[in-house]
Design a protein around this nucleic acid. Structure first.
Length: 881
RNA sequence: GGGAGGUUAGCUCAGCUGGUUCAGAGCACCUGCCUUACAAGCAGGGGGUCACUGGUUCGAAUCCAGUACUUCCCA
């Protein structure tokens, strides 16, 4: 025994077993006759390094996959990364800048060469880090959204949607990131309240000396004004209907239009309309056929069309132009104001609404089946309440802008020739098409120009559950693995990803992409702040694994993360995980230190103990399986945790532990090992490394096989009478220990215990090994049943049974009396409540018979306790007086 | 502005279809222990009018309404 360290050392164990599993190809999956269980990883950014969110998310997936594997299913977990257009391009640009290279000086191809180099060098880091966590992915299947198979799928889908009229190109208002100089989807814009100022500016009414005053937070857009709008019912402005206003300092005369869109009590009730720079204004512009004047360049500086300060930044111009207006007497007043400002998720630049020509997917045409599937629980959400969010978004769905003004990504498969557009999977097809349409057979590829933009990264991610199985080329694997079993992801990308995958699934396979969706919470710090790089509040994931072991970290992540609920990360959690590993480790050391002796028969106590363990294990396993059904992983883990720590270590091992230097019966030894290995099987999905290690340490000389592939315990109801008896014994033993603690008695001092005779007590006493068990665990000198009503010493009630510990000590009668009286009151209330129930006809008539039976039992027990307590109180009163 | 959720021990949360041996878990806390598997431990213990108000009911942490506070989503 001495050669085994008293502390569990995870590092070498983890390294050893991970490479062993890999060498055995245990993670590998190919279609066969077994039931499949498939999971696709939410592909992390190729730029990413492992953070807490990944650890939580991937631990959960690994738990599910490992359990499925132990259940004999063909478990397939497909790993991969996505190319993260904006983030990666930004990273590569920065890297180039550090090397003194400007993106603007490079051709597209040159830039992409650098980008791929970067990807090859750094792109796989996160996947290697997942291995440290124990992730049992089928690494041979590692996919990347820009590899050949996944890219082909993207182009196919684009062409297909276009052909069927569900994808189009149009000039619309978009969210423009002037720093990245690209469009953003709605989901990539983060809104927040910011301090700004509301400028009240007066516009002269054409041909009069009258003015109309508008309020705006953005005076720099005034050069783009092409109307002033008022509410039709606003009496202040009736006189101006049909007239024109002069845009101050610009001199443009613009119509005063009337529209119910205007909010009368906001600002002055008059609204300047700038169709090129505001979504709502754009709609007004379309409705009233207004001119659009785009006053900005794509980097947020003023354009030549603005006529003022060309080339200056919009925020600089805001100040300058406001000052000009003021100097010219057009500013009526300036108020401090808070408004909602959208910023780019990636660059934090203030998003500029901008008119631009982009590609869109007609989402209404795709949403139907995906919405229905979730509504009907055909796709089941865990937790359920995410359905509301999903429904709301799907019912108000807007078209998806999929083009991005970047180079890193899938280039839009559209080619232009003159005024023609050809959408095709490749240039050769586009050329064929071009020849046909134009009638010019002499066209060459050089005559066509491909769209400069790339597609939104999610336009490849939404195909992921299909494309990782090469499903757009071949049905072979798709038929087996698809729909996947479960998707595990954060609720924050329910729209970006989950909804879109559901749509793509129905669109191209006619089926849902997954049966279940498990939404994890966000990992936050103790102050509930989201973990982020900026705040620096995220622990180093790999450091955590080094310090606490992968199993410890997995335990920490899981033990406190109910589905959908946020995980408030605290290093205490992983510490608990590490301590748990140590506990398991030491239980193993204890057992391995025993000397089994074939010539000794197991005692009745031994037999009772291991039979009880079997029953209890069975009950726990059943509960764990039920918890898995509902994805209550943290409940499942905590059940196993307390089963191991309390039942197995604190109770069972102490029950069967032989005395110092004494041997243990071989039967009991073998049985203990078998229980422990079952425990390893049960715990393995959560803590794979230590369970594998212990499994092998315990099995060195006997059975073969690995914990990872051992059958997962199914569990059952268990022997209720035996379970109840042991629970009673445990409570009794605890009560005796309490007597010790209260009276300052040493644990070595053996005590005589008497039980007041009763049916229950005799029944328990008849169970083989019961009395020896209590005697051993409570450190008794003797344990007898008596008919005496009182014995000198301390007495107490367990369930409805009365026990006496014979003691020659003074007891504090007054204090004891107070306690017993308090308890009596509680019991009286308890019984009173049940009596009320049982005397109520409607209850007796209506409640199910087993409920009534239970109430009767509770009543009888309660009454018995009252009887015993009353006796006691009378006796104590006598002593006090 | 529209919508969804939350409010249970000091902290983080369980508590499913209403029924007091269920007010529970983990952590934290207090007391006593270096009892040779484990001090990363052992034994014992104290903590809660289940946000507030009203209603339904024989009975409410659990259902309903309102109030307060709070989180989130969408605009």
């Amino acid at each position: 025994m001495s050669e085994i360290s008293a502390r569990y050392n995870p590092l070498e164990v983890e390294e050893k077993w991970y490479s062993y599993w890999m060498s055995m190809q245990y993670f590998k999956s190919t279609p066969d006759g077994r039931e499949p269980y498939s999971v696709v990883i939410p592909p992390p950014n190729v730029t990413g390094v492992l953070h807490m969110g990944h650890m939580l998310n991937n631990t959960i997936q690994d738990v599910l996959i490992r359990k499925a594997r132990q259940e004999g299913k063909n478990a397939c977990w497909v790993p991969g990364t996505d190319h993260a257009s904006i983030a990666t391009e930004a990273k590569v640009v920065r890297m180039l800048r550090e090397r003194g290279i400007k993106k603007a000086d490079l051709s597209r191809d040159e830039f992409l060469k650098y980008a791929w180099e970067w990807k090859e060098e750094y792109g796989g880091i996160i996947l290697q880090q997942l291995q440290k966590l124990g992730a049992s992915c089928d690494w041979d299947r590692t996919a990347f959204t820009m590899d050949e198979i996944r890219s082909d799928a993207v182009y196919k889908v684009f062409v297909d949607l276009h052909r069927r009229g569900k994808l189009y190109r149009k000039k619309r208002m978009v969210n423009w990131d002037p720093e990245a100089r690209t469009v953003l989807s709605n989901e990539e814009v983060i809104y927040g309240m910011e301090n700004s100022r509301l400028f009240h500016v007066k516009y002269q009414i054409e041909g009069t000396e009258e003015y109309i005053t508008i309020a705006t937070t953005r005076p720099e857009t005034i050069p783009g004004d092409t109307a002033v709008a008022v509410h039709p019912d606003d009496p202040r402005y009736h006189a101006f209907h049909g007239k024109r206003a002069i845009v101050p300092l610009i001199g443009r005369a613009v119509p005063i239009i009337v529209d119910e869109y205007v909010t009368m009590d906001f600002g002055t009730g008059a609204l300047k309309v700038t169709p090129a720079h505001d979504v709502n204004d754009f709609d007004l512009g379309v409705k009233h056929q207004l001119e659009t004047v785009d006053v900005f360049n794509d980097d947020g500086t003023m354009s030549s069309a603005a006529g003022i300060y060309p080339g200056d930044d919009r925020f600089v111009v805001r100040k300058k132009f406001a000052a000009d207006l003021d100097a010219a007497g057009y500013i009526v007043k300036i108020e401090d104001y808070k408004n909602n400002v959208g910023r780019s998720e990636r660059t934090n630049a203030v998003v500029e609404p901008r008119l631009s020509l982009q590609w869109y997917v007609d989402m209404k045409a795709l949403a139907g089946p995906a919405l229905d599937a979730v509504e009907s629980d055909e796709i089941e959400f865990f937790p359920k309440n995410q359905k509301n969010l999903y429904r709301h978004w799907m019912e108000n769905i807007r078209d998806w802008c999929i083009s991005r003004q970047l180079w890193w990504g899938h280039r839009v498969p559209a080619w232009y020739y003159g005024e023609f557009t050809f959408v095709a999977e490749n240039i050769a097809e586009a050329l064929e098409e071009a020849k046909k349409i134009s009638g010019n057979l002499a066209l060459t590829e050089a005559d066509l120009s491909q769209d400069e933009d790339v597609l939104d990264t999610w336009f490849s991610s939404w195909l992921w559950p299909i494309s990782v199985f090469d499903g757009f080329n071949s049905k072979e694997e798709l038929n087996y693995y698809y729909p996947t079993s479960v998707l595990v992801t954060g609720w924050d990308i329910i729209f970006l990803w989950v909804a879109r995958m559901a749509m793509a699934g129905f669109e191209w396979t006619g089926e849902k992409p997954f049966h279940d969706v498990y939404f994890t919470g966000m990992v936050r710090d103790k102050q509930r702040r989201k973990m982020s790089k900026q705040l620096g509040n995220s622990p180093d994931a790999l450091k955590l694994i080094e310090d606490y072991g992968a199993d410890g970290v997995r335990f920490g992540m899981l033990s406190c993360s109910p589905a959908g609920g946020d995980l408030l990360f605290d290093e205490k959690l992983v510490e608990q995980g590490r301590n748990f590993c140590n506990k398991l480790w030491n239980a193993m050391r204890l057992i391995l230190g025993w000397t089994p002796d074939p010539s000794i028969e197991p005692t009745p106590l031994d037999q009772l103990a291991y039979n009880w363990m079997d029953e209890k294990l069975s009950v726990i396993a059943l509960k764990v399986n039920e918890d898995f059904q509902q994805y209550r992983l943290s409940d499942a883990l905590m059940s196993i945790y307390s089963f191991i720590w309390d039942d197995f270590c604190s109770w069972y091992l102490e029950m069967v532990k032989p005395g110092q230097g004494e041997p243990i019966s071989e039967q009991c030894y073998t049985k203990t090992i078998s229980i422990f290995t079952d425990i390893c099987s049960l715990l393995h999905p959560f803590m794979p490394f230590i369970t594998e290690e212990i499994w092998h340490q315990l099995k060195t000389n006997s059975q073969k096989g690995d914990c990872m592939l051992s059958p997962y315990p199914k569990g059952g109801k268990g022997d209720e009478i035996m379970l109840a008896a042991i629970e009673h014994a445990k409570t009794l033993i605890t009560a005796i220990r309490e007597v010790r603690a209260k009276n300052g008695l040493k644990s070595k001092e053996a005590l005589p215990l008497y039980a007041k005779s009763s049916q229950i007590v005799s029944a328990f006493e008849k169970i083989g090994g019961y009395s020896p068990l209590v005697t051993k665990m409570a450190g008794l000198f003797s344990f007898e049943i008596t008919d005496l009503e009182d014995i000198q010493g301390v007495n107490f009630i367990v369930d409805a049974e009365k026990y006496f510990v014979e003691l020659q000590i003074e007891i504090d009668a007054a204090k004891e009396l107070e306690e017993k009286q308090k308890e009596l009151v509680h019991q009286l209330n308890f019984v009173d409540g049940i009596l009320k129930k049982l005397t109520n006809e409607r209850f007796v008539a209506g409640a199910p018979s087993d409920v009534i039976e239970k109430e009767r039992k509770k009543l009888a027990d309660g009454q018995e306790r009252i009887r015993l307590l009353e006796q006691e109180v009378i006796k104590l009163k006598g002593l006090v007086n």
